[in-house]
Design a protein around this nucleic acid. Structure first.
Ligand SMILES: [Mn+2]
Ligand SMILES: [Mn+2]
Ligand SMILES: [Mn+2]
Ligand SMILES: [Mn+2]
Lengths: 218, 218
DNA sequence: AAATATATTTAGACTTGGCTAAAAATAGTA
DNA sequence: TACTATTTTTAGCCAAGTCTAAATATATTT
């Protein structure tokens, strides 16, 4: 129905829309897609003609509900495949993203439905991100960044913002994964660094780490 | 490494090569790929430059060992995914081909290796076709078409030549699948039609049916 | 062997999705 | 407000892969 390029644009715009409420700028899209702003303008005009997003010259774009639905469908596939790769094929959670980038474009509603059932209709992917349902609705859970917690607060790790291998491997070394309980023992206000407790271990983390861990506080 | 179009050409030529020993003609490729001969000429020249096949103007082409290896790799992926779809997702054997046509282009050696292990390192796909090993070698088994059998001969169905839904659904209706024992009760030499026995049933089949069923005798 | 038919290649064009360089609009600053 | 910097768009070009129409080579008949 839609080309690989079109799906990738819709997905990128969808994600950018979540982060910063309001219209998405041409440059932001170009940045996210590692492409040039001029290429973005071309594609955005094409997608606007197809009513997948609304666009006004120089004003940025935002997805129509039709565009959002398609984007959510691609994200649904991406995350379901990631679950498959980790749960069934025993990939490590830092190895699956690139493969899912390819698998998310496989076109077959029946396949998605059966995959979902095969995996036990999971709600979250291996990185803690919610899996949109077949209608494109995403369950948003109240979660905050670890860096927003104060001294003595505690919570459960429910997701990662960054999914680069180096970060995920760091978390493994520290025995932090989805579901891990974390308590803030100390917080330095000058640089935002923290001392946290994970299981029996206590250690120092930088603000950059704390900025990339999602926590649910009871 | 290679584009989707390139992989599909290599696969088509590989299959054509098996059927008719000798060079593969431009028109045959165009036919199989549902494209125009002029498009085939373009691509074949490009693949020849990349040393994936040998080509002489007006003389047809044949894959180099490098080209064969790549084609076998794509076919390996196609057939492994078909096994996944049927064994794990419970698709029917007549529903999987189109989806496998997409999945066969996913690029990740690690994925193929893990999928293979997950599926129990199968030797055949749901249609009885052999799955090439990681080096591109295909185990060829001695099999003949049902239409080649004579009256009173018997054997086991080990594959189908045609994989269109209508044909596979016909076989289902007749309770014929991979592993089914078939005995030829009668054969009409005028049109090649047969009376065969399958389980307790005896029925008439046309030559066209008999031409698309692979049988292993002895 | 010449004529005809078929197969194949070439030439030129089109679409998709990129890019660079230049122009135009908007935002920021003095 | 006027100048400057940044963002965005336009214009023109390119590569991959496809097509149609025309040219050329090979195969088949007479
Ligand atoms: Mn991912
Ligand atoms: Mn993920
Ligand atoms: Mn198939
Ligand atoms: Mn098959």
């Amino acid at each position: 129905m839609f080309s690989l390029a079109e799906e990738n644009y819709l997905k990128a715009i969808f994600h950018l829309q979540q982060e910063s409420k309001g219209g998405v700028s041409t440059n932001a899209i170009a940045e996210k897609m590692s492409t040039k702003p001029s290429s973005v303008t071309d594609m955005v005009q094409k997608l606007a003609e197809k009513k997948l997003l609304s666009y006004q010259k120089y004003k940025g774009t935002s997805l129509t509900s039709k565009g959002s639905k398609i984007a959510a469908g691609v994200i649904r596939k991406h995350r379901l495949w990631e679950v498959f790769l980790v749960d069934k094929l025993k990939f490590h959670w830092d190895e699956v993203h690139e493969i899912a980038e390819q698998l998310e474009h496989i076109q077959s509603d029946e396949l998605v439905a059966r995959l979902d059932r095969f995996l036990g209709e999971p709600d979250f992917d291996p990185h803690g991100d919610p899996i949109p349902d077949k209608n494109g609705n995403i369950k948003t859970t109240e979660k905050k960044l670890l860096s927003e917690l104060d001294k003595k607060q505690r919570g459960v790790c429910v997701g990662v913002k960054e999914t680069k291998s180096e970060f995920l491997q760091y978390l493994d070394k520290r025995n932090i994964t989805i579901g891990t309980k974390i308590r803030v023992l100390g917080k330095e206000f000058f640089d935002g660094s923290m001392i946290i407790q994970v299981g029996r271990d206590q250690f120092f983390i930088s603000k950059k780490i704390a900025d990339n861990l999602y926590i649910q506080t009871s």
